[in-house]
Design a protein around this nucleic acid. Structure first.
Length: 550
RNA sequence: GCCUCCGUAGCUCAGCGGAUAGAGCAGCCGCCUUCUAAGCGGUUGGUCGCAGGUUCGAUCCCUGCCGGAGGCGCCA
């Protein structure tokens, strides 16, 4: 009996109690099933009686009694107790609970997938860096969390597309070209230019590959440096992200928005919706109609389109490509964009609550030897994704960033997350996985096979705990998707790893010495395999490897 | 001034209205002849920023205040 099965049983019990006239109320749409913190309270608990007390006008405990009486009729339910103001504490009988292990093993790598978001087509846009330099710490957070979010949304049944918006248009590109040219010629980098260490190296590479660039006149030279630098930096970003395990379905160029006519189409569409107006020779979008604090310029009086015009066109282009929901993952410095992006959706006639969602990633700081590693150009300590991965490894970086909600500021201790010990949650979870794999190998050597499964033998308290934890996984994944909080998967895995370790200490899977193989050994092997499956599926959702040996 | 996020153990942080508020680290004490000790058990540590409100019940929701981070351009 999985938690979903139990909810079905509870709903049926509520329905029968109502039909029997015990109280009058509607059967609730949603029934909340909890895992009590204190295992003595039962395997599961529900507050459904407390919820129904008010609408039915009956005391909570009376409602609870009526539901409990019905629920006890259900085969598979061992006991139902009423506690406190009217909680139902439920114990599932061992053979029924043990069935979770079989379900997990049978479903294998698809265990945890649900259809809670089935039918929705979601565009997840993240990182979207300028192609003018290396990816830094802020990008790294989204490279990990955005990718994990996309995986979690997919697991919940959504049709997900990952997208990287290339900011390849605008004055920062010219500043980039001018900086490269200056570096190549040994001149001073312009004040508004790029001062990173990578600039001279990149300039030298461009000159080496295209010596003829030095023959061009100044203006053409800036253009040429800009375009070559763009090409190389974009390739570098793609390679870096690929090595990090984050791949995109679409790399979308801002320039393409303009060359493809998407911007004109967007202006036409917004005009048709009646939210455009002209003032002081500029063209404005009346975003204040929809919660923005000021209207925004689309076309400047000098005839240039603003970045905001690209934003509007880009959003509409995504919608025209068939996405029901556009998710934007932005850095904390962009949080002022939330209202205006939502206003774009509203101005276009969309529902800003349903079609667009903006998540803000707060700042990440890194401590090394107790000191903050600063983003300082002068000190040469620019923290790039590559630096971070070199220092800690892909798994540790991805996991460390994925186990926190992205909307809270984060401080990571480099010394801690690079330590290969239990201090480090990623190793704790990976070790649990490796341990289950080791048991599977040893079981194979002694000849234990999964031919017999006797769930009622799984009666130890650590086995009950492990089974209920395994049963939670699909709900955790669905919740992580719904709330856009992949960190819930990481926290769950840490709990599960601890539950596995405690079981492993308490219960032997493989017989000692020359003891005979019993059904208990075989059945425990099922539980071990089920746990391995969930640890592996969960780590996969975070883009972290699940090693078989450590 | 306005907007967003944050304030929970010495530190880093979980906890989308439920029971005695949790984890890891740091500190202290134990457990390896047999399935991975990268593990397990025990122990120390809290006015959940403050004050009201809503509720059977608030760390969680609402209001105000205090403190911290960030954002408020015909820049990109």
């Amino acid at each position: 009996m999985t938690p979903a099965d139990l909810i079905t049983s509870i709903r049926a019990a509520v329905s029968r109690a109502i039909d029997a006239g015990a109280f009058t109320a509607e059967v609730p749409d949603e029934i909340v099933l909890d895992r009590p913190k204190n295992p003595e309270h039962g395997d599961y608990a529900t507050n459904v009686a407390l919820r129904l007390a008010k609408p039915s006008g009956k005391p909570p405990r009376l409602v609870a009694e009526a539901i409990a009486a019905e629920l006890r009729q259900d085969p598979g339910i061992a006991s139902v107790d009423i506690a406190g103001p009217g909680f139902l504490n439920i114990r599932v009988d061992a053979s029924s609970l043990g069935g979770v292990a079989r379900t997990v093993v049978q479903e294998g790598s698809s265990y945890g997938r649900t259809d809670t978001l089935a039918g929705s087509k979601i565009n997840v846009e993240f990182i979207s860096a300028n192609p003018t330099g290396p990816l830094h710490l802020g990008h790294t957070r989204w490279a990990a969390v955005g990718d994990a979010l996309a995986r979690v949304l997919s697991a919940a049944g959504a049709d997900v597309s990952r997208e990287f918006y290339i900011n390849d248009r605008g004055v920062q590109m010219d500043a980039f070209g001018a900086s490269l040219r200056a570096a190549a010629l040994g001149a001073a980098i312009p004040d508004n230019g790029y001062h990173g260490d990578y600039i001279p190296a990149l300039a030298a590479q461009i000159v080496a590959e295209h010596p003829e660039i030095l023959e061009l006149d100044a203006e053409k030279q800036v253009d040429a440096f800009r375009e070559e630098g763009y090409r190389l930096q974009l390739a570098e970003q793609r390679r870096t992200l690929e090595d990090f395990g984050t791949e995109f379905d679409t790399w979308y160029s801002e320039r393409y928005l303009h060359t493809s006519g998407a911007v004109e189409r967007a202006l036409d569409q917004l005009k048709a919706q009646g939210h455009l107006y002209a003032d002081a020779d500029a063209l404005w979008l009346r975003t204040t109609d929809f919660g923005d604090d000021k209207d925004r310029v689309l076309l400047k009086s000098d005839g240039d389109l603003t970045y905001f015009a690209s934003d509007a066109a880009y959003y509409l282009d995504k919608r025209n490509r068939g996405f029901d929901l556009c998710v934007y993952l932005l850095g904390a410095d962009h949080h002022g964009y939330v209202n205006r992006l939502k206003a774009i959706a509203a101005c276009a006639g969309d529902d800003p609550e349903a079609n667009i969602e903006v998540l803000i990633g707060q700042l990440v700081k890194i401590l090394r030897a107790g000191q903050e590693v600063r983003l300082s150009k002068r000190a040469g300590e620019i923290v790039t994704l590559t630096d971070f991965v070199e220092a800690a490894g892909v798994d540790a970086v991805r996991y460390s960033l994925s186990r926190y909600p992205s909307d809270s500021p984060l401080t990571l201790d480099l010394d801690l997350i690079t330590r290969q010990s239990s201090d480090n949650p990623v190793f704790y979870v990976q070790y649990a996985h490796a341990r289950t794999c080791s048991v599977i190998r040893n079981a194979g050597e002694v000849g234990i096979v999964l031919d017999t499964f006797v769930p009622e033998l799984l009666t130890h308290e650590t086995e009950t705990a492990l089974l209920t934890a395994l049963g939670d996984f699909p709900r955790i994944v669905a919740q992580a998707a719904e709330l856009r909080e992949p960190h819930r998967v990481a926290r769950y895995l840490e709990e599960l790893a601890g539950t596995l370790h405690r079981w492993y200490e308490a219960c032997r899977i493989i017989p000692r010495g020359d003891e005979e193989i019993t059904d208990l050994n075989r059945t425990r092997l099922w539980l071990n395999v089920a746990t391995r499956t969930v640890l592996s599926n969960g780590l996969h959702l975070l883009g972290v490897s699940a090693p078989e040996r450590m």
